[in-house]
Simulated assay, not measured.
Amino acid sequence: MLSHEQMQQAAQGGRTQHAVYVYEAPVRLWHWITVLAMTVLMATGYFIGTPFLMLPGDDAGMYLMGYVRFAHFAAGYILAIGFAGRIYWALVGNEHARQIFMPPLFKLAWWSEVMFELRWYFFLEDRPKKYVGHNPLAAVMMFFLFVLGTLFMIFTGFALYSEGAGHGHWSGVVFGWVLWLLGDSQTVHSLHRLGLWLLLSFILVHVYAALREDIMSRQSIISTMISGWRSFRD
């Protein structure tokens, strides 16, 4: 949470504004690459689950689903490589770079802040608290739904990919165990598709919350992921 000293800055007209550098360039770059990769993955993944009607023939246009699958696999590689790089930056970057990976889940006072934020989002609190990085509710949602959800999609996705990659392919060596752990290929397909809808639901809430906080909390949220600087306007 923003300290009292950080919030104090005299300005003309009685209005205070303070800016703090929060998100380093690698974090911001990863964020937008992930946005693009997930957009492609969700669109193509939906059509892989409910494919277009394919008619027999030699027309090159009949290979449409092949292109869809290729785009899905390529975006999957980009997502996984970017996520691995993001984990590395969580270890070497600033404190905000690791916030969504290591929330203080065992601190009772932190959960009190989570409940306050929940009340704020349900319009049960009059004034918001200000945080330099993610607020506690955002951090817990990012950890359980986005971080763990993305890991689940990477593991199940590459496990399914290994089925068509052939015996001895690295994806089968690294992720093949997921297939027998979860039962069978069809179960993994179903869970992977369920993960699509869970992540999509999270993204919709995430975008809404960012827009809402940018307006109601009078602090920059969206522009911070572009410039890296968070400004507080009261």
Rank of each mutant, 00 (worst) to 15 (best):
H72Q: 15
F73A: 13
F73S: 11
A74Y: 03
A74S: 13
G76N: 07
L79I: 10
L79K: 02
L79W: 00
A80M: 08
A80C: 08
I81E: 08
I81D: 10
I81N: 11
G82A: 06
G82I: 00
G82F: 00
G82R: 00
G85V: 04
R86H: 10
I87F: 15
I87G: 05
I87M: 15
Y88N: 04
Y88W: 14
Y88V: 09
A90S: 12
A90K: 05
V92P: 10
G93H: 03
G93R: 01
E95D: 09
H96W: 14
A97K: 04
I100G: 00
F101W: 12
M102H: 05
P103M: 06
P104T: 02
K107I: 00
L108R: 12
L108P: 03
L108A: 12
A109T: 11
A109K: 11
W110V: 02
S112Y: 05
E113W: 01
V114A: 05
V114N: 05
M115E: 09
F116V: 01
F116L: 03
E117S: 12
E117L: 06
E117F: 10
L118H: 10
W120G: 01
W120C: 03
W120D: 00
Y121A: 05
Y121G: 01
L124P: 09
R127L: 14
P128I: 01
K129G: 04
V132M: 06
P136I: 01
V140K: 00
M142P: 01
M142N: 13
F143L: 03
F143I: 07
L148D: 06
L151W: 06
L151Q: 11
F152D: 11
F152K: 11
T156D: 04
G157P: 03
F158H: 05
F158V: 00
Y161T: 02
S162W: 03
E163V: 14
E163A: 13
E163M: 13
A165T: 04
A165D: 14
A165K: 07
G166Q: 09
H167G: 10
G168K: 08
W170M: 13
W170N: 12
V174C: 08
G176L: 04
G176R: 03
W177M: 06
V178Q: 15
W180H: 12
